[in-house]
Design a protein around this nucleic acid. Structure first.
Lengths: 132, 132
DNA sequence: GATGGTGCTTCCCATGGTGGGAAGGTCAAG
DNA sequence: CTTGACCTTCCCACCATGGGAAGCACCATC
């Protein structure tokens, strides 16, 4: 199977497959007669694993660890630790974004949204008025 | 006021001030006798505006628009439009991350987290088992 | 006035994950 | 054998930010 088909099968773009190989996340693919990469079912399985992990927001670095655990001695404690750490960072980012959203929602709610220049959003951004 | 003091006053790093100047977000600062940039209170005010807008998650591009509206004819409708669009993208990202978090939370909850290799998290990542 | 330390200048590089595109080689079907 | 689809490598871009090097400016202290 060539890279295009492996990409279609796994949902990982050919571009990304090459990238993952270049950074050492996956083993360098075998090359057939020519210089074309050659993929088998296990390779596609690995790519699907990566794809799913990316969908769950894991970093490439974490995915490297998860792949090692998956294919190695797999103590689930370690997997769980990675997952919980990732959940914590997701929670932190969600909280941060929700803070932004709520603040901005409040300001937008108070904004007329017409042709007048008065605008609570701009006033907030401009900070405390020194000039009156 | 030199760049270091402007940075301290505004909360924007000197590095970022130079960057904002380079990409045209702010006007090139006046240079004093030597080649040092020279900042006044209005410049710091603009930097604070940018800082606050970044804190609310606006992109540099959006901030450029907001700065123009702030210092121009300021129809609040336009400001509100930008804000609502940004809120929508925040909501989308929050929903996406919450999806990740919930899926992962579920998996982690079912994971023993001990020395055994059985792990719902790895099983999810590995996808449907073809081999049994 | 020399000296030293701090702060400024520009320039290049890195991050993370992904895509775009050019220039050239390869394969299979007609 | 030609054509078109696919592969190869290599460089560049995004977005926002930080690190660091080499060199110049400034100020205080001796």
């Amino acid at each position: 199977m060539n890279i295009g088909e492996a990409a279609a099968e796994s949902g990982v773009s050919a571009k990304m497959i090459r990238h993952y190989e270049a950074i050492g996340l996956i083993r360098p693919a075998d090359r057939g007669e020519s210089r074309y990469r050659h993929f088998g079912a296990p390779d596609v399985h690995v790519l699907r694993f990566i794809k799913r992990a990316r969908t769950l927001g894991f970093s490439i670095k974490d995915i490297g660890s998860l792949l090692g655990l998956w294919q190695g001695h797999r103590p689930s404690a370690e997997v769980k630790r990675l997952a919980l750490a990732h959940i914590a960072s997701l929670d932190a980012k969600i909280a941060e974004m929700r803070g932004m959203r709520d603040a901005l929602g409040q300001l937008a709610r108070d904004c007329h949204g017409d042709e007048r220049p008065e605008c609570p959003i701009l006033e907030d951004l401009a900070g405390p008025r020194f000039d009156n």
